[in-house]
Amino acid sequence: MGFGRYVVARTLWAAAVSLIITTITFLLLAAAPNPQVQEAATQAALQGGDPAEAAERARELRGLDEPLYVRYADFVRGVYTLDWGWAESRSQPVTEALAQGLYYTAQYSVPWTILTVLIGPLVGVYSAANMYSWKDHAATGFAFFGYAIPNFFFGIILLLIFGVWLEAIPIVYNTDVPVFSVRNAVQLAVPVFVLVTGSIGAIMRVSRNESAEFQNADFMKTAKAKGVSPLRAYAYHVMRPTLVPLSTTLVGQLLALFLGSSLLVEVVFGIPGIGRVTYDALIAQDTNLVLGSTLAFTFVAVVGNLLEDIVFTVLDPRISYDDR
């Protein structure tokens, strides 16, 4: 199988996976009691009306009295045409709510991802090159500290120090400042710092141990014997094989971190990003928005997996397409 066919096959599989997930979501939703229908019934009961009749009316209003296959077809069409409905808890279309959340999340998650991907392996390889020196210990200590301290707590502490005591950063996040501006960089510096320290730990340790394996490999000895500079030797000959197992960690882990970690940091720093959109929707029982964000994250994960597989084969030509 050639590279092109491999990519096509993987993409088709990703599409199938997304359809399966959409179907399961629909079935779960169809089986669960609808809170709006229940609410209507409760209201009617309290006002002295007939709860059964009110529930029936509410079901009719929402098209829940249609046969299952009709509702399924509608649902799938809605999902793939991005008609995800109205987010009751925010009074705007679901897609708009998600886009808005993503806009603010991207402003810190992009620098966060880039810095993590850059700094993590670099510090790891640096540690490996200076193994058991004080530099290695300092880097390891830093990585473990960042990994161990909860982002939420670390965020509050830094906000207290830099925001309340030193008044160097604003406490209330300002959505008005331009994306590429010093003020935005200032207000995002601490959240990004907190997230980077939280996520480079694991990557740094893995890359340190991986690269330790390669720095005494035969090809490194050859390179050194040929007079290759240490920088080039590490950058070309150690870094590349190190990144192969890391590529799974990097892409996969960062995607997984996206939601969980960003929520806590968004809450502390008041950033109206995708984590809070999702969380607030859950709390408010905003079915459309919960569904929308679940699907969005599922699709991101499916695409992430796809990219991961492709990156894998590009980084390591030894991996064949056929047996995968």
Binding site: I156, L159, L160, I171, Y173, V267, V268, F269, G270, R276
Partner: peptide, 9 residues
């Protein structure tokens, strides 16, 4: 009116 969910903030 700004939404700030965290009390400490």
């Amino acid at each position: 009116i700004s939404v700030v969910e965290e009390q400490a903030s």
